[in-house]
């Protein structure tokens, strides 16, 4: 993998490479994100954006109270977001805990959703506080149950204490298990990394270690997918492409609840990373409530009147 020519895999070379990255000025990044947040998306481009956003959603349930029934209804919704409108695309994936992967896979297959991947959160999600052995097993389990996407968390404790090699090796190890069976999304948990400089460093670290996607958050920590964080990650994948000719995907997750939020994300993608990233292979949105808001806005566009929650399904 050509990206690895940038470092030799040692902690020293990793550290040296990450030190060459330019700093991020927080206020400047916030300003740029805020300015892009004022883009006004109307009519045809709004319709396009809504359908694109739907197809990018990793429809997620990650609750202690998750049951087979809950997961099955989520899968149904993932395939047919609005049972009365077949023109609506299905979502990008369903995202569940590892013990729900089999249920989700089986249900999706049974209702004609074979093309929808199941993503599993892994590596002792959300904290990542477990032994390497447990994390590897967690991942293996998910894949054996049919997960084709793995959303792993990085060891933030190791990152913040400077054990970058530790974080790197762990991602490598998980990537090895995924190999060609599963796409690897690496969750940085940016709310715990705090600074945008850390976000940039962690993004590169994950990409160098073999991530297919870099993902902002677990959804269990706030702040999550703030616009400046996504901006910095999009800059990272854009610049990483210049270095390696490899396009890494980005997945904001947590706090994206409205159509407006989602469209702002798409604007960021278009203006920062570029139009090449505007597809579900390279951009996903981790969300649950967002889907219904997108559906209601879609109705508003076609009927001209504001819709109600009574006209979308609660699953």
């Amino acid at each position: 993998m050509s990206a690895l020519n940038l470092i030799d895999g040692s902690e020293t070379s990793l550290r040296r490479f990450l030190q060459t990255l330019p700093g991020v000025d927080q206020i400047g990044a916030q300003e740029r994100a805020a300015m892009l947040g004022t883009r006004s998306i109307k009519t045809t481009s709004k319709k396009w954006a809504i359908d694109m956003a739907i197809s990018m959603i990793d429809l997620t349930t990650l609750e202690g109270a998750d049951t087979a029934g809950k997961v099955r209804s989520l899968c149904s919704k993932a395939l047919r977001p609005d049972p009365q409108d077949a023109s609506i695309p299905h979502v990008g994936a369903v995202c569940v805990y590892n013990d729900m992967v089999g249920i989700a896979r089986k249900h999706l297959d049974s209702i004609g959703g074979q093309s929808i991947p199941v993503a599993a959160v892994a590596t002792a999600f959300p904290s990542g506080r477990a032994s390497r052995k447990v994390k590897l097993q967690d991942t293996k389990d998910a894949i054996s149950l049919g997960a084709t996407e793995i959303d792993m968390v990085i060891d933030r404790g190791a990152f913040l204490s400077g054990q970058l090699g530790e974080v790197f090796d762990e991602i490598r190890a998980i990537k090895e298990i995924c190999s060609d069976k599963a796409h690897l999304k690496v969750i940085l948990e940016t709310g715990e990394l705090v600074t945008l400089d850390n976000v940039r460093k962690a993004s590169y670290l994950a990409m160098l270690a073999g991530a297919d996607f870099i993902k902002t958050s677990t959804g269990k920590v706030t702040p999550a997918a703030t616009a400046p964080v996504v901006l910095v990650m999009l800059e990272a994948v854009r610049d990483f492409f210049e270095l390696s000719q490899i396009r890494i995907g980005v997945k904001p997750a947590g706090g994206i609840r409205t159509t407006k939020d989602a469209i702002k994300q798409l604007v960021l993608v278009k203006e920062i990373a570029g139009a090449e990233w505007l597809n579900p292979e390279l951009f996903r949105i981790g969300a649950s409530a967002l889907l219904n808001d997108l559906l209601m806005q879609r109705m508003k566009l076609s009927t001209g009147r504001y819709s109600s929650a009574n006209y979308v399904t609660v699953d």
Partner: peptide, 8 residues
């Protein structure tokens, strides 16, 4: 007059 951002 000098301006500088305050950020982390």
């Amino acid at each position: 007059t000098l301006w500088h951002p305050i950020g982390v």
